[in-house]
Write a protein that binds this DNA or RNA. Structure first.
Lengths: 209, 209
DNA sequence: CCCCCTATATTGACGCTGGCAACATGAGCC
DNA sequence: GGCTCATGTTGCCAGCGTCAATATAGGGGG
C-alpha cells in the first residue's frame, strides 16, 4: 500500500517506466481479479499514477488490452516453439507436445489466455497485436503441419488436419478453463485429472494418415 | 423511437409481460450490437420502461445475462436433439450431424453462443441456468456416447472419446466465430467455405474404434 | 550553460453504467 | 369494495472511459 518512494519522501512527477509497469500491473489484476476488474483506472491506481496517465501510452482501454494480449501471444508462441524444439521428430510425439504446451499455457495464464481470444475487446489492427498473433501462428503452424503425411493431400484435407488439431486443443483448453469438464473429471476413477484426460484425448488423434 | 402506444395516448403503468419482453430485447441487442452493448439500461430502454424495472425480474445484470444464457442452452439442446433424431443410427452419420448442429447453432446465434460460455458474467447457481445447461448436456451426451464402440472401454478412454469430440466441435466453433480461421479459409481454393472446412474436419474424426 | 520544446503526468469535467432507497401505481384477492 | 403487494418510477450515488486544459521536467539546440 505504501508508495515505494515513501522513504525518499517525494514521488517523482515522471514515473520513468510507466508503460511496462502498467502492463505488469494489468496482468496481475487480470489473473487475480478477472477480466472485468481490469480497468484503466485500476491499472493506474496499482501503478500509483493518476487515472488518465495510461492514455499517454495506450490511448484507450482497447489499447491497453490489445498490448497486453500481444505480450501474451508472444509468450504463447515462445512456449509452443520451446516445446516443439524439445519434442524431437516423431510426429506423434510432436502432436502430444504441442497439445501439452497449448493447454499448459492456458492453465498457467488463464486470464491472459481468455483475453487473447476475446476479440471484441481487442483491436486486431494494432501492430503489436498483429505481430504477437503472427508469432504465435507461426509457432503453431510449425507444430501442426509437421504432422502432415509425406504424400501430399488436397489443400482442403491439409487445412482440415491442421484445423482439427488446433480446434481440439483449443476447445479442450477453453472448456477446461470454463469449468465445463469438472463434472466429467470428478466422475473419473481415482487419480485421473485434467492432465491425464488431456493425454487420453490426444491419444485419440489420428496422426500421419 | 416513438412509443408503440402513442396512438392510444397513454402507456399503461404495468407492462404486462415485461420479463419476456426484456429477454427478447436483450437478445436483439446482443446479436446486433455485441455483448458489451447489452446493459440493463439498454434493455430497459428498448422495452420502453424505466432503467430499474429489470431489477424486479432479474435482480441484477448477472441475473439477466444468466436467464438469457439459460434460454440459449435450452434452444441449443433442442437443436442438438432434433439433429440427432434426424440422423439415423450410423455412428459416423451421427457424429457429423452433431458437429453440424453444434457449429450451426453457434453461427446462427453468435452473440448468444458467446454469452453461454462467458462464465465469469453468469451465475451458475441460478436454477434456470442449471436446468438449461443440464438439458444441453443431456442432448450432447446422447450424441457423443452413441458413437462409443460396442466393446466397453476403460472409463478414461470412454470419457476421452466424448471430450475429444466435444472439444473438436467447440474449438472449431469458437475459432470460427472469433475470425481465427479467416486467413485459412481465404487461402483455400475456389468455393470452399466454413461449412466444407467443417465437413473435412469432421472427416478426420476416428469414430467407433 | 541555459532555455525552451515536448513527452509525460495531473486535474477536473461529462455522460454512461450498475445498483440502492423511497415512492407510485394498479391488479387481484379476500 | 377495500387492501395488499407485485410491479414500475424517480432520484441518487460511486465507478467507469474519455476528453480538454493544465502542470511538470527531461533533454536537445542555442
Amino acid at each position: 500500500m505504501d508508495e515505494e518512494t515513501a522513504v525518499a519522501g517525494t514521488r517523482p512527477y515522471h514515473h520513468g517506466n510507466l508503460r511496462a509497469a502498467l502492463l505488469a500491473e494489468a496482468e496481475r489484476i487480470l489473473e487475480r481479479d478477472g477480466i472485468q476488474a481490469l480497468t484503466l483506472r485500476a491499472a493506474a491506481r496499482a501503478a500509483g499514477v493518476s487515472h488518465t496517465a495510461p492514455k499517454n501510452h495506450f490511448g484507450d482501454l482497447t489499447g491497453l488490452l490489445s498490448e497486453l494480449a500481444a505480450v501474451g501471444f508472444h509468450r504463447f508462441g515462445a512456449a509452443l516453439a520451446a516445446a516443439m524444439a524439445a519434442a524431437g521428430d516423431d510426429p506423434r510425439a510432436r502432436t502430444k507436445a504441442m497439445g501439452r504446451a497449448y493447454v499448459g499455457f492456458a492453465r498457467a495464464n488463464p486470464g491472459l489466455f481468455a483475453l487473447m481470444f476475446r476479440s471484441e475487446r481487442l483491436d486486431a489492427q494494432r501492430p503489436a497485436l498483429r505481430d504477437g498473433i503472427d508469432a504465435a501462428r507461426r509457432a503453431l503452424r510449425a507444430a501442426a503441419f509437421a504432422r502432415a503425411p509425406v504424400k501430399t493431400l488436397p489443400p482442403l484435407e491439409m487445412a482440415a488436419q491442421a484445423v482439427a488439431l488446433w480446434s481440439l486443443v483449443h476447445g479442450f483448453a477453453v472448456l477446461l478453463l470454463d469449468g465445463r469438464l469438472d463434472g466429467m473429471l470428478k466422475s473419473l476413477p481415482g487419480d485421473e485429472n485434467a492432465a491425464s484426460l488431456l493425454e487420453a484425448v490426444l491419444a485419440t488423434v489420428r496422426v500421419g494418415e
